[in-house]
């Protein structure tokens, strides 16, 4: 039986324009595809990944345009659709002024006080 893995994503928007995604969310998609039993916890400013309507399009340097900007909320939604639990820290949502109506469906909100119990459900914790 596979080990249960929790990915904690804290460094939000690190090189997402260059990469056209978040590299940890991308990594999560990749190993989920390989069969990993995996979940995600967004904390810090990475909670903003769950916000609908983000638009990073329009970047151009000279005549070189970025035609495929990152779709961070969409990438999360596709993880959720694959059965990956995506948790977000409630206090970090509040600190960033985010309300439920701005968020994609399916995110699991968790109070900071509930994180120890959450960690206890997993065999491996990878804190990015």
């Amino acid at each position: 039986m596979s080990k249960k893995i929790l990915q904690i994503v804290e460094s939000g928007y690190r090189a997402t324009i260059e990469e056209q995604d978040d590299t940890v969310v991308w990594f999560t998609h990749a190993i989920k595809g390989g069969g990993a039993a995996i979940a995600v916890l967004l904390r810090g400013h990475a909670v903003n990944y769950g916000v609908n309507g983000q638009d990073a399009s329009g970047l151009a340097f000279g005549d070189k345009k970025q035609t495929q900007p990152p779709d961070l909320a969409g990438d999360l939604a596709r993880l959720i659709a694959k059965g990956v639990e995506v948790h977000v820290v409630e206090e970090d949502l509040v600190a960033h002024g985010l309300v439920a109506t701005e968020l994609i469906p399916g995110l699991k909100r968790i109070a900071r006080s509930g994180i120890p119990e959450l960690l206890g459900r997993y065999d491996l914790i990878w804190h990015w």
Binding site: I5, S11, R14, V24, A30, I31, G34, L124, W126, W128
Partner: peptide, 23 residues
């Protein structure tokens, strides 16, 4: 390799450690 190689290594290992870029 690919991320799946790391996952398989972690599955087989006694423990694993991710040392990420921060900031």
């Amino acid at each position: 390799g690919s991320p799946v190689d790391f996952w398989k290594s972690a599955e087989a290992a006694d423990n694993s450690l991710v040392i990420p870029t921060k900031g």
